[in-house]
């Protein structure tokens, strides 16, 4: 656990130094949101469509941002050092925490931009949306971290990542879109408890299998 936090600290420090995520991912979000705004123009779009668009932006931002976790280590040639000084589980935890932090900050920016630019982005039950948002982000971080580990060992790194991640993230994204619709309709938490339970199961299953399988990817 200590090693995991040390790794998280190291990643945060290198992030502060290079400002990769803040610069490029922030700009990416701005670009994507403005492309959507331009393509909509003066059209009035429905609230359901805004909810769907929100998760589309989240998906593509995490696709471009989260793959860095292990690829950056391979690029700098620090994989071997990491293998020597820490156990695989703590490496996965460190990267997982870093990705969780990254995705939460990114998605907060996206949510703020959406509520600023889209007048239909209103929730009757904001608490339900916040719950879905938190559980969903953890799920996205868990599965994209393990996919990032697979990608870092494979050849063509850039294009393969969304291809591999999309089918894994699909049940999560679909449930999240469903939940977003429900919170726009003003369902109470107990009314949507089934969907929340599905999200929670997904998180648990993903984190558990990622911990079990990370060993095999990391060691070769």
């Amino acid at each position: 656990m200590k090693a995991a936090f040390a790794l998280l600290k190291k990643d945060l420090a290198s992030e502060v130094r290079t400002r990769y995520a803040i610069n490029s991912l922030g700009m990416f979000i701005v670009v994507v949101v403005s492309v959507i705004l331009f393509s909509i123009g003066d059209e009035k779009i429905t609230d359901y469509l805004t909810g769907g668009l929100f998760w589309v932006v989240v998906f593509f931002t995490s696709m471009s941002g989260l793959s860095r976790a292990f690829v950056s280590e391979e690029e700098r040639g620090t994989t071997l050092t990491l293998q020597l000084i820490a156990r695989p589980e703590s490496i996965y935890s460190g990267k997982f925490f870093f990705n969780v932090a990254l995705i939460f900050s990114m998605n907060l920016i996206i949510a703020l931009l959406f509520s600023f630019f889209f007048e239909m982005f209103i929730f009757k039950n904001i608490l339900l949306f916040v719950c879905a948002f938190i559980i969903g982000n953890i799920g996205v971080a868990a599965s994209s971290t393990i996919i990032a580990a697979i990608i870092s060992k494979a050849g063509s790194k850039g294009t393969l990542y969304p291809v591999l991640a999309f089918p894994i993230l699909l049940p999560l994204i679909l449930t999240l879109i469903e939940l977003t619709k429900q919170s726009m309709d003003g369902n109470s938490i107990s009314e949507s408890s089934v969907e929340l339970a599905v999200l929670f199961c997904y998180d648990v299953v993903m984190v558990a299998s990622a911990y079990l399988l990370f060993d095999f990817i990391w060691k070769d």
Binding site: S143, I146, I147, I150, K153, A154, G155, S156, L160, L164, P167, I168, L170, P171, Y202, V205, M206, S209, A210, L213, F216, I217, D220
Partner: peptide, 22 residues
């Protein structure tokens, strides 16, 4: 996308297990 028999086998095994739990 992966070259090398063993690496390919390991990575695709891990991926198919992760995909299977979904």
């Amino acid at each position: 996308a992966v070259d090398g028999d063993e690496k390919r086998a390991t990575l695709s095994s891990v991926y198919s297990i992760i995909a299977f739990v979904t």
